[in-house]
Design a protein around this nucleic acid. Structure first.
Lengths: 339, 339
DNA sequence: CTGAAAGCGCTTACAG
DNA sequence: CTGAAAGCGCTTACAG
């Protein structure tokens, strides 16, 4: 590889490394003549400063770490896109790690990023994460941290989220306003706050419209998968043959409900209305197309990076950074699985 | 942040940095007593070597660069997953960059990774990439390189691909064997080799079965999008009302065909059979479900990383590495849009 | 068995 | 205007 170094330029020009470095950084105490000579040669040799040496000296890597639960996932893939693009625009590169929704992996990955001395970390929690001690470690080490989507209120850091409660409330209300009364909720596991908030939104919408809440109308999808959606629909219909709507934790689960209905000639939305969550590409293409909640992943990624870079900046200039909480708007998309 | 350094340990123990370093690396010329003392203290202080310092000394970053055309894309997201996971298993971290199918961005990104001194680079070419000079730069700088999926034959490097010709041949043949005779092909732009190979496979399958090839049966999808699929189907039916099948460059385009047929009450597969490519999640969920070619993204990512790490290894030990070409098997999945 | 020295590639306070 | 020196955190050939 043999990259060009300051030393080589200095030797060719018969001057000191110091002067070369200063000339390249446009210090005023270098003669215009020397400056020109150095710059010409540097350009000619295509000199690029060794970022590793810079990192060691400046104590910054210009690398951001990103930990997400999944990647083959419309919402999270959109987030990666936003993060990588925006980071690049600000001169940062992104190391992506995938926790695969595992608490253990997530812990290891946090340690990995910390050891690597990244300049900041972006985290969306794994579904199975219960304790957040590993996340506090990030703060304790004074590494800038921004959490997005799957956050924990135990951690004091900037956040970019959607209002899951609100979104679920609106989705459930749409179902109610369209005439549904026996509304099942296929919720996610109990760990993630997003899951809990959506569940609360569902309950509160029922309450507002004076529809009694039945705990037996709520089923938990452990794997948040198509299969879960399918099986839970089967179970729900066995338990309550007269249900008229299903609100799901995510489109993947809703796709399972959809499939079940299709296989069993249950008409959507006439017999059963369905609303999913996240607006995966699949939801638009199913037939009937799936009503869902649009969740702005790409923008979330961009905003999260911006907050993080801001914090990295304040840390460098020793300012105290104020914690920010950005709540992005969502929108219920009423398509063909709702009336 | 203030991380623990060798110096600190040395000071506390009143010995030299050299000895601390050696003790930690288990050099035999350090007394067991000293070793134990150093190790205990290091463990207690949770000492981690500064990777930046290591990089500077060892001339390796333990970082791999990955450039892909898209990320909100089932196949490429699967690849990221495989790459990140396998790299992690081998002690490497991955910097992901997204070219957004732009030649210009791809060029910049290659330069970015080279400047960053990553230990190796994984590339899948942008759709709009015509010249490969920027890729040759990687080889010229002697940075290990592996290309996958969207490769260029102009570049001499290890590759992980599928046999696009073969896959397209088989898909088209299935269509023929099921009785179709007027088979449209919605191909991709002319740049990418994958596009070209699939087109050839289509033609050769026709030839084998003595079905005349009509250039007018072939349409080019510029954006490789659902919209393109929709519009081109409309055009194709105007030009040739009697077509009985469509083979598409990818599932996204096939989804457009599917949508058009649905909207116009054209029965699939009775009136028109469709086969897509890549086995996106959507293909399974559409109804009728889309027949397609399964393309092993996750495995491709794993294999690509393994090849790359192998090359990084040979480079370090100054061996000459032999170029490898891995061709992963594909499978035509016959679902409901084919007879 | 221990440690001073040199070096990876850079920057900057300081002396001249 | 120029450059020697020190230092970022580590490793290793070498001397003792």
């Amino acid at each position: 590889m043999q990259e060009v170094t300051l030393k080589q330029i200095a030797e060719i020009l018969q001057i000191s490394v110091t002067t070369v470095s200063k000339a390249l950084k446009d210090y005023k105490d270098v003669s215009p003549k020397t400056k020109a000579a150095v710059r010409n040669l540097a350009a000619k040799l295509n000199y690029k400063p060794n970022p590793t040496a810079l990192s060691l000296r400046n104590r910054e890597t210009k690398i951001i770490g990103l930990i997400i639960p999944e990647v083959v996932h419309h919402f999270f893939a959109s987030i990666i896109h936003g993060v990588v693009l925006e980071a690049e625009n600000h001169g940062y590169l992104v190391i992506t790690l995938i926790s695969n929704d595992s608490y253990e992996l997530e812990k290891q990955q946090v340690a990995l990023l910390l050891d690597k001395r990244v300049d900041g970390i972006l985290v969306s929690l794994a579904g199975s994460t219960v304790h957040t001690h590993h996340i506090s470690q990030i703060i304790k080490k004074e590494v800038p941290l921004v959490m997005f989507d799957k956050i924990s209120d135990e951690i004091r850091c900037s956040q970019v989220i959607i209002d899951d409660w609100q979104a679920a409330f609106e989705a459930t209300e749409k179902l109610i306003l369209s005439g549904c009364r026996k509304i099942i909720h296929l919720k996610g596991p109990d760990g993630p706050k997003t899951s809990l908030d959506r569940f609360e939104g569902y309950k509160d919408a029922l309450k507002k419209h004076r529809i009694p809440f039945h705990p037996s109308y709520v089923y938990t999808s452990k794997n948040v998968s198509i299969e879960d959606g399918y099986k839970l629909t089967e179970q729900a219909l066995k338990d309550h043959p007269d249900i008229d709507a299903v609100f799901c934790i995510t489109d993947l689960v809703a796709a399972g409900v959809h499939k079940y209905c299709k296989n069993h000639q249950i008409k959507m939305p006439e017999q059963i209305s369905i609303i999913g969550f996240s607006n995966w590409l699949i939801s638009e293409l199913m037939s009937p197309s799936l009503s869902t909640v649009d969740q702005p992943g790409y923008e979330m990624g961009i905003r999260a990076v911006n907050l993080l870079i801001q914090e990295i900046g304040s840390k460098k200039s020793d300012e105290k950074s104020t914690l920010q909480k950005i709540v992005l708007p969502t929108k219920v998309l009423m398509r063909e699985t709702t009336r």
